[in-house]
């Protein structure tokens, strides 16, 4: 039956087909390996789809999760990455950490303290920034707003 396994296998089948299609105009040596793999992946995916359609197994992969927390974390991470490009590593790091320290604590026994979250966020960002910037000499992004 149509369950999450057959749907995801179908997605892999599409990826395999796309890979085959996209390697069409390459040199023989450049396209040989990816095409072999794409064919194998396609075959496995078709078998998997067939198997899971025959087996009548019900799947509920996303049951029992707190969707709100997960979705906000996913959005948070994405926004964080975008912010790094815009305002640089330090400020975006502080914002991200402070918000989630505070947000994930909500619903507990005590109401979370925003000040405490902010202070921790600054300390952690500062510590890691120093380690990477001054000791390992990794030039971390400064953000477009600051001319990076």
């Amino acid at each position: 039956m149509l369950n999450s396994t057959s749907i995801s296998s179908f997605a892999f089948l599409i990826i395999a087909a796309a890979a085959w299609y996209m390697t069409g105009d390459l040199s023989k040596m450049g396209s040989f390996f990816p095409r072999v793999i794409a064919v194998m992946m396609g075959i496995f995916a078709i078998i998997q789809i067939a198997v899971s359609l025959l087996q009548k197994k019900k799947e509920e992969p996303f049951s029992g999760i707190d969707a709100k927390r997960v979705i906000s974390m996913v959005l948070g991470i994405s926004l964080y990455v975008a912010l790094i490009m815009l305002i640089g590593f330090i400020l975006s790091g502080i914002l991200f950490l402070a918000f989630f320290f505070w947000y994930l604590e909500r619903g507990g026994d005590k109401s979370p303290s925003m000040a405490r979250s902010l202070i921790l966020a600054v300390l952690i960002t500062g510590a890691f920034y120093s380690v990477f910037h001054y000791i390992f000499l990794v030039p971390l992004p400064v953000g477009m707003l600051f001319g990076g």
């Binding site: 790094i84 960002t125 890691f128 992004p141």
Partner: peptide, 28 residues
């Protein structure tokens, strides 16, 4: 607590994936 561990781990993964090749696309 998870409320601290989870964001810190994310923070580390971001800085780590950037540092390896100094490439923002890698972070994405």
């Amino acid at each position: 607590p998870v409320s601290m561990l989870a964001p810190i781990v994310v923070f580390l993964t971001i800085i780590g994936s950037y540092a390896i090749r100094n490439n923002m696309l890698d972070v994405g």
